[in-house]
Nucleic acid binder design. Structure first.
Length: 569
RNA sequence: GCACCAGUAGCUUAGUUGGAUAGAGUGUUCGGCUACGAACCGGAAGGUCGGGGGUUCGAAUCCCUCCUGGUGCACCA
């Protein structure tokens, strides 16, 4: 598609002898469209050219030779040059691109690049609660968007299926296993054991030591420990799958921490050879003080067992070899920022190509807090994700009953709307912000929400169904799409691919969420101000086409966020 | 104590690389369904961008400092 910004930059570069790329960086999109579509602030050139900004602006305007088909008007306001793009050209470009490309915005810019995304990663034998939702949906959205841009994307569910917590569970199970009906309600019962053993550990240091020892036995392949571990893991995965089915989550790999149990020896050997692995207080550590990190990274505990960090290092080595990644993203809460700083620093000692160590990136997100504070499995105050999703579906169902009780497949639609609301809510704000959990906020279906976008989509579908046809663009009179509302939509559609690229530049799916809200809002305005069906034929054809484009892009965009669209609601 | 993150309207928040009059949603309030779905649309009120300094032609954005909240800081993950 024609890139207006680049065209303008090229022209300005020609008449100022300033680098085109630099000019392009300065060009901005004015907030008010009364100031044009693109603006170039001349202040930055003032020093270099030793002239007042308005003088520079005038010079550029005089000298510039730009095709009227691209820029229809140039105005000078203060030190700004405001460019008004040719709207007919814009409309033509967008419609043409749309007609040629069924999957609008899809690209190949990521061709032959491999992206590993590590996300979701719930802990075995612990409830899958609302705190795990963010990693799951942010990771999935990034996965989908990278893939749409042509990257080869690998989604990994790095299950928390190893570590001292298992030593604790094994100890608890040994002590009181018979008192609990684990087969029946595995996670809840195991959680009870986990809470109880934790309390005991706090009271009695010897019990904690025994738990750590159990984990060591597990690592060494003790058959009793391994048998219990396998059992707990299988039961947990079955439970998790219920939530993944509701959310529609899929992963390319389920290799959790335990998968790396036989791959850590190599890490320790490599680190040994660097001479940086030193003993301290009985454990073996890498000191990172010279890297500005005051906490050392523990590679091996004093009893000889490994840590989370060792397993992450083994995972880096394995993923570099297996997937040859250009980028490896870790979608976890910001509580783990220090951990990844340490691990990424130690990873530089593994002798890997810089391509890999430079590609490591932590994508942190804010925490989900209850009004009373932090959730804690140990304290037993968590909201389970399955409960939230079920409640969302139920509320959506009630609203459908109230507004549209004749609808077919009400359960299926309630599922799409309810879950769509929950996912969208989590993807709508900057990921770094904390979120205070509130049923009414998450399950609100009005305003800037998932259901608002779904509702807008349903209206487009309804119109298209009634229209029964869509014209070819050669039969559409572009001049009929030059009103404020149509142009607003076309401008937003023009920016779709750019929006997706911004998402990947910042690892920030909320940019797409907000884009879709803008598009839905623009369509609602258009819809409210214009009659679409029953207009004079040419006008109707043109407006149906706008509706058709909006309909498609809303659906594509939402599916990239991992949200399904109902055709009716 | 040290480090990192956050602080924008009553509430939830957007704001590109420093750029023109700081945008939304929600709540409050007023209005709009015999044109295609009112889970919608329009209007009003609501702001010392945490405080103070600085850099700059220009600061919500960059620097310094203070305040508030959160998170992390050796054998949890």
């Amino acid at each position: 598609m024609l890139n207006f910004k680049k065209e303008i930059a090229k022209q300005i570069a020609n008449v100022t002898n300033v680098n085109e790329k630099e000019i392009e960086k300065y060009i901005e999109i004015p907030k008010e469209n009364t100031n044009g579509d693109y603006a170039f602030p001349c202040f930055k050139l003032a020093k270099e050219l030793k002239k007042a900004p308005p003088v520079i602006a005038n010079d550029i305007k005089e000298k510039i030779e730009i095709d009227e088909k691209i820029i229809s008007k140039i105005e000078i306001v203060g030190g700004y040059i405001n460019f008004y793009i040719n709207k007919e050209t814009l409309s033509k470009e967008v419609l043409k691109e749309f007609e040629n490309n069924k999957e609008y915005g899809k690209s190949e810019i990521g061709k032959e690049k491999n992206i590993v995304i590590d996300y979701s990663a719930p802990n075995i034998a612990k409830p899958f609660h609302i705190g795990h939702l963010r990693s799951t949906v942010i990771g999935a959205a990034l996965y989908n968007i990278y893939k749409y841009l042509g990257y080869n994307t690998i989604g990994i569910n790095h299950l928390g299926d190893y570590g001292t917590q298992f030593g604790k569970l094994i100890e608890g199970y040994k002590l009181w296993g018979k008192e609990y009906n684990i087969e029946n309600d595995p996670i809840n019962e195991l959680t009870k054991i986990y809470i109880r053993i934790n309390d005991l550990c706090k009271e009695d240091e010897h019990v904690l030591e025994q738990c750590r020892y159990n984990f060591k036995l597990l690592e060494e392949g003790d058959s009793y420990c391994k048998e219990i571990w396998t059992k707990f893991r299988d039961l947990s995965l079955k439970e998790f799958q219920k939530v993944y089915d509701l959310l529609g989550s899929k992963f390319d790999s389920w290799n959790g921490e335990a998968f790396y149990s036989d791959k850590m020896q190599e890490i320790i050997e490599i680190l040994n050879k660097t001479g940086k692995l030193v003993e301290s207080q009985g454990a073996r550590i890498i000191d990172l003080a010279d890297k500005g990190i005051n906490t050392p990274c523990i590679i091996e505990k004093s009893n000889g067992s490994t840590t989370y960090a060792t397993r992450d290092l083994a995972a880096i080595l394995y993923r570099a070899r297996t997937y040859n990644f250009d980028k490896a993203l870790y979608v976890t809460s910001y509580e783990q920022t220090l951990h990844f700083k340490q691990v990424f620093e130690v990873a530089k000692l593994l002798g890997l190509d810089e391509k890999y160590t430079n590609g490591l990136e932590h994508v942190p997100f804010g925490m989900v807090l209850l009004p009373t504070g932090k959730m804690s499995t140990r304290e037993g105050n968590v909201v389970k994700l399955e409960d939230l999703l079920k409640e969302a579906i139920e509320r959506a169902y009630e609203i459908i009953e109230e507004k549209n009780s004749e609808l077919e497949n009400k359960e299926e639609i309630a599922k799409k709307v309810g879950i769509g609301a929950v996912i969208f809510n989590d993807l709508a704000n900057s990921r770094i912000k904390d979120e205070i959990f509130d049923w009414d906020t998450i399950l609100n279906f009005q305003g800037d929400t998932g259901p608002y976008i779904q509702y807008t989509y349903v209206r487009t579908r309804s119109i298209l169904e009634k229209a029964t046809y869509i014209s070819m663009i050669k039969d559409i009179d572009i001049k009929l799409l030059q009103d404020e509302y149509s142009l607003n939509i076309i401008k937003i559609i023009y920016n779709f691919e750019d929006t997706l690229i911004q998402v990947t530049n910042k690892e920030e799916p909320s940019i797409l969420s907000r884009y879709l809200i803008d598009l839905a809002k623009a369509f609602s305005n258009f819809y409210n101000e214009n009659k679409i069906l029953g207009e004079e034929e040419n006008l109707q054809n043109a407006r149906i086409y706008i509706t058709y484009m909006v309909s498609n892009i809303l659906k594509i965009g939402m599916s990239l966020l991992g949200i399904q669209m109902p055709e009716k609601m």
